[in-house]
Design a protein around this nucleic acid. Structure first.
Length: 282
DNA sequence: CATAGCTCCTGACCGC
DNA sequence: TGCGGTCAGGAGCTAT
């Protein structure tokens, strides 16, 4: 579920409400992908800074002004995995923790709660963004899709060095981050490129078209508030609307919206790929 | 080294 | 209605 647009929508929905808040208490539910990596009590009293995003990770800075602190910087690296969502509830209205609520951060300004049925998500303490474990987890990430430094020339050069299918490369996130299965399929459809095309066979104009299509797809999803294919909600609990405009994702067997063909489902790297063989060419 | 496959976990859905 | 099988949006880890 949560690809870059959903993660960014989540960030925007609570960043300005949690900034400046002090940590009051923590509650840990069932284990997530990795252990928290610190004693929960050690975070009490820390002050939340501005939430930032890198790829599909969120970084919540938690600073400690006290002189005794070993890590005055530090913060929590958050990931929503496949089924996670964050809610930030102000006041005393926070519902009691449910079966899938696995992390609560009670602050002076509200409760930040991670709900994650599949528990592929993560909340990890790191003494800094440039220190392990955060730096290790972020080390392999490719360029941010909207970074101006990611030029068509750079993108094409990165693709030329690979032999995998272009869909697989988009998903891997080590050239450019942000696309998950839905947006990778949608961007390839928009660029009219067959998802099985080898990266090193993509011409410069076609790779440029793909980069533009990826950016357009992610921007539109962001504007729509993200996709809600199953259960995505932002930190206010609002659902997204983008799934209603998916052109190929989840549409196997249905008519293509651009040509007379039929959308097909194949499997690449154990993941479903949806595309139209009529208008997406190698 | 690049690449392919496996894996974590729960829930929804489908066919019988 | 119940049961078993299949599939699901991520991404780090391990083997080749």
């Amino acid at each position: 579920m949560p690809e870059l647009p959903e993660v960014e929508v989540t960030r925007r929905s609570f960043a300005d409400r949690i900034v400046g808040a002090r940590v009051v208490s923590l509650r840990l539910g069932a284990p997530l992908r990795w252990p928290l990596g610190c004693a929960p009590e050690s975070l009490v009293g820390r002050c939340a800074g501005l939430v930032t995003r890198r790829g599909k990770y969120l970084w919540l800075p938690l600073s400690d002004a006290s002189a005794s602190s070993q890590h005055p910087g530090g913060g929590l690296l958050l990931h929503l995995g496949m089924s996670g969502s964050l809610a930030f509830t102000q006041g005393d209205t926070a519902p009691p923790a449910g079966r899938h609520d696995h992390f609560d951060l009670q602050t002076t300004q509200g409760l930040l709660r991670l709900t994650d049925p599949r528990r592929f998500g993560a909340v990890v303490w790191s003494p800094g963004l440039d220190a392990a474990p955060a730096s290790t987890l972020l080390a392999r990430l490719g360029a941010e899709p909207f970074d101006a430094a990611l030029t068509p020339a750079h993108f094409h050069a990165a693709l030329r060095a690979r032999r995998t299918a272009v869909k697989t490369a988009l998903l891997a996130g080590d050239i450019v981050v942000g696309a998950g299965n839905i947006y990778a399929c949608e961007a390839l459809f928009e660029a009219a490129i067959d998802p099985r095309t080898r990266c090193d066979r993509l011409s410069r104009p076609r790779s440029e078209r793909l980069l533009a299509a990826l950016r357009a797809t992610l921007s539109r999803a962001l504007e729509a508030g993200g996709s809600t294919l199953r259960d995505f909600r932002d930190a206010h609990g609002a659902a997204g609307a983008y799934q209603s405009v998916a052109r190929v994702y989840g549409r196997a067997g249905l008519a293509c919206t651009r040509c007379t063909g039929t959308v097909r489902r194949i499997v690449q790297g154990q993941r479903s790929t949806f595309f139209c063989p009529g208008c997406q060419k190698r």
